[in-house]
């Protein structure tokens, strides 16, 4: 039915030759930036920075910089990140005249302005079993295959439960219950992407700077839709990183995530003419809690604010000499 999954799916173990990757990077005269978006990640941030710095900067110089863009942590995330050698930025202080939004997408978008790399790697800062394959395996398809411009991770994802026990699971409930049905209904080709919501991806700046960034949960979905629309699925690769242990989220948090993703998705498919919405979508996710035998609504406002393609920002064009 589709053959993209055959040709563009890789396993990290195929890319263990780091010397070769460094040589190709050098030959192509590329610079690479790693960005870690954070919000209260003091338990995991040091490990991520330390391993990437040791393995992919000191021993095999694939990365030229590691930056942390933070959404307002109240724990010691920034102090620890700085101690372990990352360049640390508070999201609110980057392009402050454009306003301050809270969300992972906002951090990723602002990282485009702060970083200098030709290639950017984004990885979540809450990965407990971090390993440098999370970065080099995403970079490898970009370095080895000229037609690949964006690489995305997928995993078997055991979720940490209880205090210290872990159990195997397929994970990705929102993927299976929300995204995959949507892809199957509107863009079946994209259902070949095994974990469209994974928070780890790498791509060329020339891709990221030309697409809008929703500030919240919709960022991963919109990124795939926009890249496929502008360049086709053939510029995307997916890499099996085998195992990722992360914090579990409760069902209500996943509900809010699903809300943001659905909204982003529906707006995108309307924009390309696949559906016609007769009325603007609402902005509030309404969930109920039972408090002292009474059901009380818990309303979360999610407007779905999007940042425009970074290339449209004058300061960015000036910084990167884009005429």
């Amino acid at each position: 039915m589709f053959n993209w999954i055959e040709s563009n799916t890789f396993h990290y173990s195929a890319f263990r030759d780091l010397k070769k990757l460094v040589a190709i990077k050098k030959k192509k005269n590329l610079t690479i930036s790693l960005c870690l978006p954070t919000l209260n990640e003091e338990k995991t941030i040091a490990k991520e920075i330390m391993i990437m710095k040791s393995e992919l900067m000191m021993r095999y110089p694939l990365l030229d910089e590691i930056i942390v863009v933070d959404s307002g942590s109240v724990d010691n995330t920034l102090d620890i990140a700085s101690t372990y050698g990352a360049d640390v930025y508070e999201s609110d202080n980057i392009l402050p005249h454009l306003g301050q939004q809270k969300g992972k997408g906002e951090n990723l978008w602002k990282a485009l302005y702060i970083t200098k790399g030709d290639i950017l790697v984004y990885i979540d800062a809450d990965i407990k079993n971090i390993h440098h394959r999370f970065v080099y395996a995403l970079l490898a398809p970009l370095l080895l295959y000229d037609h690949i411009k964006y690489a995305k991770a997928f995993y078997d994802r055991p979720i940490a439960i209880g205090k210290n026990k872990s159990r195997p699971t397929g994970g990705g409930r929102v993927t299976e219950l929300v995204i995959r049905p949507l892809f199957s209904l509107f863009a079946p080709e994209l259902s070949q992407i095994i974990q469209p919501l994974s928070g780890e991806y790498a791509g060329y700046r020339e891709i990221f700077e030309k697409i809008p960034f929703p500030i919240g949960y919709g960022i991963e979905t919109s990124m795939i839709l926009d890249i496929c629309e502008k360049w086709s699925i053939d510029v995307i690769a997916q890499v099996d990183l085998e195992r990722r242990i992360h914090r579990n989220q409760d069902t209500k948090a996943l509900g809010r995530m699903a809300f943001a993703i659905l909204k982003t998705f529906l707006n995108r498919v309307e924009k390309i003419g696949q559906i016609e919405l007769k009325k603007k979508l609402f902005d509030d996710m309404i969930q109920y809690n039972l408090v002292r035998n009474k059901y009380q609504p818990n309303i979360t406002n999610m407007e779905g604010f999007e940042r425009p393609p970074m290339i449209e920002i004058p300061e960015y064009r000036e910084k990167f000499n884009i005429t």
Binding site: K43, A46, K47, I80, K128, S166
Partner: peptide, 11 residues
């Protein structure tokens, strides 16, 4: 083997 072998690194 089934406990969580997770190391937390602080300063």
């Amino acid at each position: 083997k089934d406990i969580d072998y997770n190391y937390i690194i602080k300063k």
